[in-house]
Design a protein around this nucleic acid. Structure first.
Lengths: 390, 390
DNA sequence: CTGTTAGCGCATTCAG
DNA sequence: CTGAATGCGCTAACAG
């Protein structure tokens, strides 16, 4: 194992000494990091086995072809005689060659990597979304750089710069409106963008969002059916389109149903769900709709803390069909988004842009209200052997 | 935006025409992707605003210094007169210059990026862990490439290659033992590695893991106190150290307590938690310990499906203090790991290796048993205004 | 089809 | 302290 001397990796010597010789660099240690904590950086070589320093030149030599030919064989571009390709591939395998993406990107101006910028990976909604995006991207041969902004616009801005520095081919982002400037910068730098879940109107960026209008109307009707006359709504922040739109949709639906409403303004965080529910309970509502998953959790907890059984004592509709909710009993009525389609569509949209087609299309995928199936005790239902129940 | 002609980005022309002129490339379109779906790739220029193509040369020109000087000013390496540096930085800002990480890495052999390879981002345990790692790395100026292997060794292998291709400076990984070969390859390529949560013995890779021995012993004692005589245990897969060790620890603890045991073998997935609980119930256990969060969820669901109230009718201890569990009432006794320290320590360990120090140290952080606080109804507890309750 | 050649943008020598 | 020159590993034009 990495015992063995501390050696500065001079060029590469993949075991079969070749390559021009190097003057030994003056300094023995480089700095790791510019204005960050600096520490020494040295390569620790373990005997011969430093295979990753193998270059395409080594492969070419091994296969007895020129560098260019090796490149074509490995990348699959350009025309190559089948036997030649095989020879090169064999050589590459023998040498355990893995191409240097940096070098390739530098030349080709493509990194085959996309960025995914989300508010918080700890939010199950975004974790699931990230998973789907990553999966879709992968199936297109793209790597994903996942950046979780911790619900902080500043951090989102920092990450935007990181992604720019990495020259990702494109970025999928669930934005705050307060991140508008950062995103404009990205846009100005020519990076293809796609908005996911949320959007910022007027930026001309294509988006994939949920259409919650009908689902919210259904939810309101459901609450009314449950006997609600005064429906409380825990809204998202006005910095997000989802916050604004869902609230408007709720107002419209309530007006249509002729019920009274009470609004509590939240921020898509669990804590604001608690506060919102507390406030609504104090205002004497007899039905509640929470407009995102984390606030649903908060509202739920607060309810119980107040001795009110949500969905039993108090008609209640939550948001997003995230895994945790499956633990609840009786299960909650939920507004469900089609996460899977959303993620996949976002990747496709980005791909379209990478293909040179610009658009500012907005794809709206319908959400729906999901009611508790058997109401009480959904027991004895068979376990489906392979699908993760979520 | 992005209307405007389709132009092949010939070199760069950041608005202030300079730079050698180029022969217009023969083909108008490049291929995006080698053996993947191929599609055309073109740069869509929007007027002048293609600022990201600004290079350090442009900055140098703008500041009236040479390329090398600009580089030193921007990277902070080498010596530079303060006024010169200021001039360069100002120019960079004016041009909205963002350095090309690819180019820098190619030269410096450092990407300032680390890989994080986890089994599944949808698992709240790993989502939280990823969040911590990402945060720690960020504070050290490192970007994280997050790869979620979907509990699939093949996929883990693919990602290992991706990370190698990207020449990440190091990798933090929660491995399967079946991924041993992939990891050996990584190791052989000289990539610094750190194991997190799980480890693979004998590879000489430093690791950060939980020490669950005492917590598991406490859990067994707790179950016995609750009246259990025949304790069921839902174990993780033998492909993971956590699966093996926890089982051994459980056996030892049970032997010490003199209770009977029943083992159900699972795979750290929710579904196996259900099956495991089903099997254990059939075997007449009167107390259950599940050895990871997802299986805890599964076991919990199965219990209820069988009409048994976990932690009420049946003494039950779950694993990991993940957010969903806070929704349960009465709350579950849980074995809690110190996620935060684990993630931070892993990053520090990787940093140490990047600094040239090799070690195969194993850091074990103690887990602990957390019992329900007020048992019944933890109501009316004050809301702490800023901490996300998890 | 294959070999040759010229840089991608930057960090890092070496002279001055 | 600064400018000039070199090449990281690879892709893509070009010529045979």
């Amino acid at each position: 194992m990495g015992r063995g001397g501390v050696v500065w990796a001079s060029s590469h010597d993949s075991g079969r000494g070749n390559r021009r010789r190097w003057k030994v660099p003056r300094a023995e240690a480089e700095w790791y990091g510019p204005h960050w904590k600096r520490f020494q950086w040295r390569f620790v070589r373990s005997g011969e086995g430093h295979m990753s320093r193998t270059t395409i030149k080594d492969v070419a030599a091994e296969a007895g072809v020129s560098l260019g030919t090796a490149s074509r064989a490995l990348s699959g571009n350009g025309s190559i005689a089948a036997p030649t390709r095989e020879r090169v591939l064999a050589a590459a395998r023998r040498l355990n060659f893995v191409p240097n993406a940096q070098a390739g990107s530098l030349r080709s101006e493509r990194t085959r990597t996309i960025g995914l910028l989300i508010p918080d990976i700890r939010n199950p909604f975004f974790a699931e979304l990230a998973h789907v995006v990553e999966r879709s991207a992968r199936s297109e041969g793209l790597s994903v750089m996942l950046c979780s902004a911790d619900e902080d616009p500043q951090q989102m801005h920092d990450y935007a710069t990181v992604l720019r520095r990495q020259r990702v081919d494109g970025i999928i982002v669930a934005p705050f409106s307060t991140a508008r400037d950062s995103l404009r910068e990205l846009q100005g730098s020519g990076t293809p963008l796609v908005f996911l879940d949320r959007t910022i109107p007027g930026m001309g960026v294509p988006a994939v969002v949920s259409d919650t209008r009908d689902a919210i109307a259904d939810a309101v009707r459901y609450l009314v059916d449950q006997g609600a006359h005064r429906i409380g709504y825990i809204s998202g922040p006005s910095e997000t389109t989802t916050g604004v739109e869902r609230l408007a949709e709720f107002r419209a639906a309530a007006a249509a149903s002729g019920v009274d409403i009470e609004i509590a303004h939240g921020d898509f965080q669990e804590h604001s769900g608690r506060l919102g529910m507390r406030s609504l309970l104090a205002r004497g509502v007899d039905g509640v709709l929470a407009s995102d998953s984390l606030m649903t959790i908060g509202a739920f907890k607060e309810c119980r803390a107040a001795g009110v059984k949500p969905a039993q004592d108090l008609p209640f509709v939550g948001f997003d069909d995230i895994a945790p909710f499956a633990l609840l009993q009786p299960s909650l009525p939920l507004i469900c988004q089609d996460l899977h389609s959303m993620g996949a569509a976002a990747v496709q949209m980005l791909l379209t842009q990478l293909g040179g087609v610009t658009s500012s299309q907005e794809l709206r995928l319908e959400a729906h209200l999901k009611l508790p199936s058997g109401s009480e005790a959904d027991s004895a239902q068979p376990i489906d052997p392979h699908h993760h129940e979520s």
